[in-house]
């Protein structure tokens, strides 16, 4: 299976290059980086610290797509709309690991999913996705008499908040309760905020350190509290999960899929 990587010079991109090269049945078919950026033209293996693989990092995602059975995209949000247009045009499936989307980006993803299989994957860790399944079940059993709060920590570099993973966690709580996240999300608290409105889902954001952090969901009832938490210390697990998703999505009909679909965690 030929896998192309968008954003192959980035933190996760490099790990992806190593993972694809190390995975049996997978072959690297190319990589892109930001047009005009420092990686264009060098060997795809170089940022990853590998021997040259004989492919130059390209600034032309269309060409890489044409050479690939599937794309793994861990670039940055401003590139997503273009990448989604190309997916729709070519029908090549994409595992979309990039996060930080605005409404236009989400619309572009939904449009592409009519013509190509897209795995929307704001967190590709198998364990985090297992946790999402637990969270949905817990939210369903406890209902909104238990106030739900998400506490989310990410590495210091992440430039937007809440992180894609934190939003995915909050959405999952809402889904478990049969609610829509847009109606119940409380993203910031500052100053005189009054008592907590019932049924809302709060997100508190913490930042620090170099590696990816963790997520905690607190379900606080009057007489008991249930919590689930996830921590990760090595971003290589994201690359592993993304390659699993790439292998899974090849041959799937056009639609938007989630990592829970990939891992069979309904």
């Amino acid at each position: 299976m030929k896998i192309g990587i968008f954003g192959c010079g980035g933190t996760i991109g490099r790990l992806l290059v190593r993972e694809v090269v190390a995975t049996e049945g997978c072959e690297l078919s190319g990589g892109t980086s930001r047009p005009g950026g420092p990686h264009i033209g060098i060997d795809v293996g170089e940022p990853a610290g590998l021997e040259p693989v004989g492919l130059a990092i390209s600034d032309d995602p269309r060409a890489v797509m044409a050479a690939s059975d599937v794309i793994i995209d861990f670039s940055l949000a401003p590139a997503t709309a273009q990448h989604m247009l190309l997916a729709a045009e070519t029908g090549i499936p994409v595992v979309l690991g990039t996060t930080g989307f605005d409404a236009d980006d989400y619309a572009a993803i939904d449009r592409a999913a009519a013509d190509a299989a897209i795995v929307e994957a704001p967190n590709t860790s198998a364990n985090l996705n297992f946790l999402l399944m637990l969270i949905e079940r817990i939210a369903g059993v406890l209902g909104d008499e238990y106030d739900a709060e998400v506490l989310s920590m990410s590495e210091r570099r992440l430039p937007f908040a809440p992180s894609g993973t934190a939003m995915e966690v909050a959405k999952t709580v809402a889904a478990g309760r049969g609610a829509n996240i847009d109606d119940v999300l409380e993203k910031v608290r500052d100053g005189v905020i009054g008592p907590r409105p019932p049924g809302t889902i709060g997100i508190a954001v913490v930042r620090g350190g170099r590696v990816s952090g963790g997520q905690r969901v607190i379900f606080a009832g009057d007489d008991e509290i249930v919590e689930v938490a996830y921590r990760s210390t090595d971003p290589a697990i994201y690359a592993k999960g993304a390659v699993t998703a790439a292998q899974w999505v090849v041959g799937k009909p056009p639609a938007k899929y989630s990592m829970r679909d990939v891992f069979g965690l309904a």
Binding site: S125, N127, L128, F130, L131, L134, G221, D222, D223, E224, I225, V226, E227, V228, A229, Y230, R231, S232, T233, D234, A236, I237
Partner: peptide, 21 residues
Amino acid sequence: ATEASRIEIVHRAISRAVFAG
């Protein structure tokens, strides 16, 4: 706990009323 990641499930009791509920 496994390599590079960890899941925790936690319960904190606050009062005996949980049993009644």
